[in-house]
Design a protein around this nucleic acid. Structure first.
Lengths: 204, 204
DNA sequence: ATTCGCTTGTGAAACGAATCACGATGCCCA
DNA sequence: TGGGCATCGTGATTCGTTTCACAAGCGAAT
């Protein structure tokens, strides 16, 4: 499945869920409009799912949701840890959107002893020493990294050693990870900078 | 300038800044390694800046930083408002990375009266009623949206009416905006879902 | 002054993704 | 039962981006 397609599947899922229960069937055209893409693109994307829409009618909404969830691996509930419980880490720990889509935050960790014992969203913040054992014990495969940039690589190495397979990194620093580890970088300042470019260009 | 290039410029800037003051000159190869891209790609990207590296030597690090900042429009200091002061909004208000790259958070707004008067990072949370006037008065051109999904479109419309030109939207809902408005969508759950896909695929 | 090694800048080629265009197909209704 | 309409699935095309490959240029050393 093309990378570009994979990155659109969550969008489709979101759009379908937002449609409410009114419509039992959607056309590629409809979905394309709400998702802001070309309808042929939608059809091609969905065709990778082995999805079978019905010609003349469209796709069954609930069935399509199901297929998307299955394709995205959202059938199983993934366990996630968050490392770095600053402002952003706390916010993510409290974020309800994760649970809603099949992710289960099972532990919060921070290197700063002052943070320990504090409770965030019903979880006690634990020490980095607990990290490795917890990951192995609870079969955690995903981690969210919200440490300062300087600490990110070290923590990533630790996580990988403990058996983590996917990392979502919010620290503004590029991680060096082995090929078999999935890693995505989200940088808030970067996003603003991109906007800044277009805005500056627009004014010129 | 190609879209793909624009999205890499902040990365280059980040890499160059992280290099410390040791090196006064960098080759495309070096920068490519730290940024995780192909060196020819780096050179082509930089060539759009009208940058002139020196053959046999490389690029002057500081000069290149400067050129990147100029290209990205980071010379002028942008004023930013944050709307929706929940967990994520508060975290972003406290985030130091924005100031560091030329953005200045000038106001926080929330529809919930219970939030008013609370202070976050030295700013009082204000009412939505103040939003429009503040934007016009202080010539604010960028907004960060961290409201619940259901409120996002309404707030976006309000912001645009008030003269905002760029929106960074963290709400998990796609915004309909006029063409001339720059809008970027960052969805945390989406990111995890993409990771989920690759991880599930990897295990199969 | 000449040679050598390194690095840039860029045309050309390869690749991947988006879009177009249309045949194929299923549903509804007369 | 047949015709018409709506929509899918997909080959062909176009577009944008990445990568390759190499000539041109600069600096250092001899």
């Amino acid at each position: 499945m093309p990378k570009a397609t994979v990155e659109r599947l969550p969008l489709y899922l979101q759009c379908l869920q937002a449609m409410g229960d009114v419509e039992s069937t959607v056309s590629s055209e409809e979905l394309a409009n709400t998702a802001g893409v070309n309808s042929a693109n939608v059809r091609k994307d969905l065709s990778y799912l082995g999805s079978h829409g019905v010609r003349g009618v469209g796709y069954n909404r609930l069935e399509l949701c199901d297929q998307l969830r299955r394709a995205l691996g959202l059938i199983e509930k993934w366990s996630v840890v968050i490392v770095g419980i600053g402002n952003l880490g706390s916010a993510l720990a409290n974020y309800r959107g994760f649970d809603a889509s099949g992710f289960n935050v099972v532990g919060l960790y921070d290197a700063d002893p002052a943070k320990r014992g504090h409770q965030v969203d019903g979880h006690y913040v634990k020490s980095m020493d607990d990290l490795k054992l917890d990951i192995k014990e609870h079969d955690v495969s995903m981690a969210i990294l919200t440490t300062p940039a300087a600490a990110a690589q070290g923590v990533a190495d630790l996580l990988i050693e403990a058996g983590i397979q996917s990392i979502l990194n919010f620290a503004p620093s590029l991680l060096k990870v082995p090929n078999e580890i999935n890693c995505r970088q989200v940088d808030l300042a970067t996003e603003l900078q991109i906007l800044s470019y277009y805005q500056a260009a627009h004014q010129a």
